[in-house]
Structure formats: structure tokens, C-alpha cells
């Protein structure tokens, strides 16, 4: 196993490209243990993912549950340790950070979670919730903290601030709770926001409000944003590029319109087909979506991860060999043998 990895990582380079975030051949594998000890294989949650993100750029990582998007996100947040590969963020190499460096690294990345109610400690007031990151990151002056809290609450439009600051999460509506989560992510003035399905738990009528808020913050603070979602229909309101993930790998990368109008990977096609728009005609047609489930990440199939479900499988190739990254259209990359001649 190690040999394969070694081979894969042989030609790594860490040249500075001026990007805010560089993800280099990232492998996040979780070791499975049998009866608490003894190696029983790996869960290949993220399997050789590379990309770059410039300051102020917003990307969307789209995929179904278990595709590795959450593991990728947690690794970028510094919560998971990659088994191979590295992340360079704002000049800091994740693998070489000590405790202090890790604090600084984490303080520059804001985290917006999916379930706003679960993401807020229920026993803390909004003030204490927003105070925590400041205290932990060494803002000692209570006046300065108070000012910063009020400022960030204004920014996420939790105003008048005094109506909210002493409240507890359960007293707020879902949309307001999510604003608190965003305020907490913003309070340390990060350069990157990782938003994990920030609107999927919210009602339709507030979803848009939160998406617009994130968009405004991104623009006004020149934030880089990684927007993680399963819902293709929301990404174009927010991101420039889409990464489609399937079974630990990025199956397709391109700008939003390219993905929506010219999907190259059959999985992306299926996702687009499956995504509904409110249209009465939907009820009269059957959707052509592949049956089955994503593969096990412990024993992924040989060849392309998607080949067991793929309607366009090329027998003898897709089921045997790992597809490399093809670029049939400039800046539109895909892991699919269909484009081997491009």
C-alpha cells in the first residue's frame, strides 16, 4: 500500500503559485482496526485530491453523502490528519505546524456548519458563543471583544444587536441561528470560509437570505469560500467553480456554467438529471438516473469508482484502470475515460 502511495506522490511539488489555499495530492484515509487493534484496511475518504484556491475565490464541492466532501472539509479545517499529501494555506504548511501555528492556521479559517442548532452550544448566550473564539485566540480586552462581537453581529444583520446578544440559541429562528454561526465564523476575520451545507437544514424562504448574506460577506471581505453541498441548484448563486466529488475523488472540475451546461462526467450528468426544478411536467416522466449506491470506500472497485453504475462504461477499460485527469475543454477537468481522446 505504502509503495503505491509513494509512487503516486513521487512528483509532488510545493511551488508557491500565489494561491491562498493549495491542496496537494491529499489522501485522507482512516485506518480500520479489527477488535481495537490489528489492521483491517483503510476507509479512503479522500483519495488523491488536489486543487488551488485564490483569495476571494468561491468554489463549491458537490457530492452525495459519503463522497468524502466532509472529510476533505475537516482536513482543510485541521480537524483530520491526512495520511499523505499536504495543505498549504496562507503560507502555512499544515503538516509542519506546531501547536501555536495550528492555532493561527485555524483562526484564519471560518467554519459554517450545516445544522445551526447543533452547531451552537445550547447553554451559551449569543454573546458567550461569539466571545469564545476571541478568548481562545487571545483577545484579552473585554471592551475590544464586545466591540468586535457587536460589529460582526451587525455584519450578519443580527440587529438591533441588543435584541439578540443575550439570547440563547433556542430562542432564535433557524435563519437567525445560522447567522450566529456565520458571525462566529467571521469573528476572527478569516481569509477562508468553509461552509458545510449552510442552508440545507433551513426553510426555503430563509435559504436565499443566508446564501445572499454569505455572498455579500464574501465580496465585502474578499473571502475565499469553499461551499460544500449536495444540491447543485444552489451553487450557481454563489460559487465560481464546482468540484464534483464521487467516492473520495474529484470526478469533475470546472466553472459553474460549464458543469451545468456541458457536464463531462456521467456522474455529473446523473446529478443534474436527478436535481428537480419545480415543474408540473416532472410528475409525468421517469428520470434516467443510475440505480445502486456509491461504492464502499474500504474496498473501492478497480478502475473508475463510478464504473459499476455508469451507463456509458467502456468495458475492459473503465473497470480495470484508474482514469487520469483529462482536460477535454480548457479548464474543465474530469476523471473519465470517455474523454481519453480529447
Amino acid at each position: 500500500m505504502a509503495e503505491i502511495l509513494e509512487k503516486k506522490l513521487k512528483d509532488q511539488d510545493f511551488s508557491d503559485t500565489g494561491a491562498l489555499l493549495q491542496v496537494k495530492r491529499l489522501h485522507v484515509w482512516f485506518e480500520l482496526r479489527r477488535f481495537g487493534f490489528g489492521h483491517a484496511g483503510y476507509v479512503r475518504a479522500v483519495d488523491d485530491v488536489s486543487f488551488e484556491l485564490k483569495a476571494g475565490q468561491a468554489i463549491a464541492v458537490v457530492g452525495e453523502s459519503g463522497c468524502g466532501k466532509t472529510s476533505l472539509m475537516k482536513t482543510i479545517l485541521g480537524l483530520n490528519t491526512p495520511i499523505k499529501g499536504d495543505i498549504i494555506f496562507d503560507g502555512m504548511k499544515l503538516s509542519e505546524l506546531d501547536r501555536k501555528g495550528m492555532m493561527e492556521y485555524r483562526s484564519k479559517i471560518g467554519f459554517v456548519q450545516q445544522d445551526p442548532y447543533g452547531a451552537l452550544p445550547p447553554f451559551m448566550s449569543i454573546r458567550s458563543i461569539l466571545d469564545e473564539p476571541l478568548i481562545i485566540n487571545g483577545v484579552k480586552d473585554p471592551k475590544e471583544r464586545n466591540e468586535r462581537i457587536r460589529q460582526v453581529m451587525e455584519e450578519v444583520r443580527l440587529s438591533p444587536v441588543d435584541d439578540f446578544i443575550e439570547k440563547f440559541p433556542h430562542m432564535l429562528s433557524g435563519g437567525q441561528q445560522q447567522r450566529v454561526v456565520i458571525a462566529r465564523a467571521m469573528i476572527l476575520e478569516p481569509k477562508l470560509i468553509v461552509a458545510d451545507e449552510p442552508v440545507s437544514m433551513l426553510d426555503a424562504s430563509v435559504r436565499v437570505e443566508i446564501l445572499k448574506l454569505l455572498e455579500n460577506l464574501q465580496k465585502s471581505h474578499n473571502l475565499a469560500v469553499i461551499y460544500i453541498t449536495h444540491d447543485l441548484s444552489t451553487v450557481r448563486y454563489f460559487s465560481e467553480r464546482i468540484f464534483v466529488m464521487y467516492a473520495g475523488k474529484v470526478a469533475e472540475k470546472a466553472v459553474v456554467d460549464e458543469i451545468l451546461n456541458n457536464p463531462l462526467h456521467p456522474y455529473t450528468e446523473a446529478l443534474l438529471t436527478a436535481t428537480s426544478e419545480p415543474d408540473a411536467a416532472n410528475a409525468r416522466i421517469y428520470k434516467e438516473v443510475p440505480p445502486g449506491e456509491p461504492p464502499s470506500l474500504v474496498n473501492p472497485p478497480t478502475g473508475c469508482n463510478y464504473h459499476p453504475r455508469c451507463p456509458k462504461i467502456i468495458e475492459g477499460l473503465c473497470d480495470l484502470e484508474d482514469p487520469p485527469e483529462f482536460e477535454p475543454v480548457p479548464n474543465h477537468l474530469t476523471l473519465c475515460w470517455l474523454h481519453k481522446d480529447a
Binding site: 485555524r106 467554519f111 456548519q113 452550544p121 481562545i136 462566529r184
Partner: peptide, 12 residues
């Protein structure tokens, strides 16, 4: 809980 995940993310 995700709030603990958040706390780890801001360095607690």
C-alpha cells in the same frame, strides 16, 4: 456534537 467540532475549528 457539531458545536464541539466548531470549537475545535476555532482552536479550543
Amino acid at each position: 456534537s457539531t458545536y464541539i467540532e466548531a470549537a475545535r475549528a476555532y482552536g479550543a
